[in-house]
Amino acid sequence: MLCLLVATAIALIAVRGLLASIMLTSVYGLLSASFFVTMDAVDVAFTEAAVGAGVSPLLLLLTVAIVGRREAASNARRLVVPLLLVTVTGALLIIGTLDMPSFGSPDAPAQTHVAPRYLQQSGDEIGIPNVVTSVLASYRAYDTLGEVLVIFTAGVAVLLALAPAGQGGSARAEPPAPEHLAPHTILQVVSKLLIPFMLLFAFYVQFHGEYGPGGGFQAGVIFASGIILYGLLYGLPTVCRVIPPPVVEVLAAVGALIYGLTGVLSLLAGKNFLDYSALAADPVTGQHIGIIAIELGVGIAVAAVIITIYYAFAGRLHTRED
């Protein structure tokens, strides 16, 4: 598995031309997701598959559709400094690995300090089987709030960069419906059947995250993918009519606020920020309520931001084609 990853990365250096690079990036994402499964990191694998092999190549493709797929030959003289830098950094990293606890050892400090509490007590303290969700949504919920704000920031940043003038900040583009999509009838029919299931699956992932791999982030990505698929096949104007950009932008902020205000509720109840035990008489029930609420916030914010980013890029593509 790791060797395949190395091969992909080397191919990425060798290959010139952006389309091939994007395909390789996607392969790299999928391979690392598979590697994560062998490392027992199922939640991470799920996310990496959705992001590394899904959203990220999609955005790259949209970009390349706008800026062109050609890549100029690099200057051989410019290779010396990078090679030197990479060698020094790599050597330092190798030195760093020499005193590391050996791979997979159950006695490594990372396995004996802090983490055991999550494994042994989260069952009683939080009451849900997926320990990753417990840590993510409760023990380290503040990191996750930060993560939502990161993705929200990305949405704001993309809009700031790409928003066309005179649309009140929205990445709206409303050219006439393009005719050239007609040959895709089969795809359109198939996807019409597929998309409802994707959206349904998104909801399943959203609310199943406590028991199995999944949660708000993955659900948001899947939901957004369904909408984007619709947009790719039926054209941006159609999908913009179904889900107008300003609504999505408001939802992005609302998602982040749902998360934040859940924390503020605990504050108002006299407990610390994001201490969900304040949300119900029974602490474990409180944890449940809190986790469902913040996962909902995550799902809404992530889906809305990804759709917003897609609108912004696709809008650029449209204005270019005209």
Binding site: V114, R117, S138, Y139, R140, A141, Y142, K271, N272, L274
Partner: peptide
């Protein structure tokens, strides 16, 4: 010191 989420360090933030 302020324990976010009410979880004491080093388990919480």
């Amino acid at each position: 010191s302020y324990a976010l989420g009410g979880w004491a360090a080093p388990w919480g933030i």
